[in-house]
Amino acid sequence: MAYERIMGLDVIDEQEYQQYREAMMPILKSFGGSFGFDFKVSEVLLSKTSDNINRVFTITFPSQKQMESFFSYPDYLDVKNMYFDRSVKSNTIISLHETTI
């Protein structure tokens, strides 16, 4: 079993967002996390939010506890503050669930 989060983002600065991804990747791996799918979206046909979504991805962890620990880890929060907050206008959690993939 694994724990997966499906996210939708409104990325407003692709270069800055790429720096975020590169900086957070070693931290993500240290928590057993990984990306499964990653899409740049050109058109959203139906949404439960008024926020724009132009990026959709899955992020998976061995457990919900490891996911929660990752997102509250001080080194991750530093990277998030440095790059993510300037490159992403909004983020939407589309789904959280256990998976066998």
Results as ranks from 00 to 15, higher is better:
residue 3 Y to N: 05
residue 7 M to Q: 12
residue 9 L to Q: 02
residue 12 I to S: 01
residue 13 D to W: 10
residue 14 E to Y: 04
residue 14 E to D: 12
residue 15 Q to V: 07
residue 15 Q to C: 01
residue 16 E to S: 12
residue 17 Y to E: 01
residue 18 Q to V: 02
residue 19 Q to G: 09
residue 24 M to L: 04
residue 24 M to T: 01
residue 30 S to T: 00
residue 30 S to E: 13
residue 31 F to E: 02
residue 31 F to I: 06
residue 34 S to H: 05
residue 35 F to C: 07
residue 36 G to Q: 08
residue 38 D to L: 08
residue 38 D to M: 10
residue 40 K to Y: 09
residue 40 K to C: 09
residue 41 V to Y: 10
residue 41 V to S: 09
residue 45 L to V: 15
residue 47 S to N: 13
residue 50 S to T: 07
residue 52 N to M: 05
residue 54 N to A: 09
residue 56 V to L: 10
residue 56 V to C: 06
residue 58 T to D: 09
residue 60 T to A: 00
residue 62 P to C: 06
residue 64 Q to I: 11
residue 64 Q to L: 08
residue 65 K to I: 12
residue 66 Q to F: 01
residue 68 E to A: 11
residue 70 F to E: 04
residue 71 F to D: 00
residue 71 F to H: 12
residue 72 S to T: 09
residue 72 S to V: 01
residue 76 Y to F: 12
residue 78 D to A: 15
residue 78 D to L: 09
residue 78 D to G: 13
residue 78 D to N: 14
residue 79 V to W: 08
residue 79 V to K: 07
residue 81 N to F: 07
residue 82 M to L: 11
residue 83 Y to C: 04
residue 85 D to C: 08
residue 86 R to A: 13
residue 86 R to P: 02
residue 87 S to G: 06
residue 89 K to F: 06
residue 90 S to G: 13
residue 90 S to V: 04
residue 92 T to L: 01
residue 93 I to V: 11
residue 93 I to E: 13
residue 93 I to S: 13
residue 95 S to F: 07
residue 98 E to R: 14
residue 99 T to N: 01
residue 99 T to L: 04
residue 99 T to A: 09
residue 101 I to T: 15
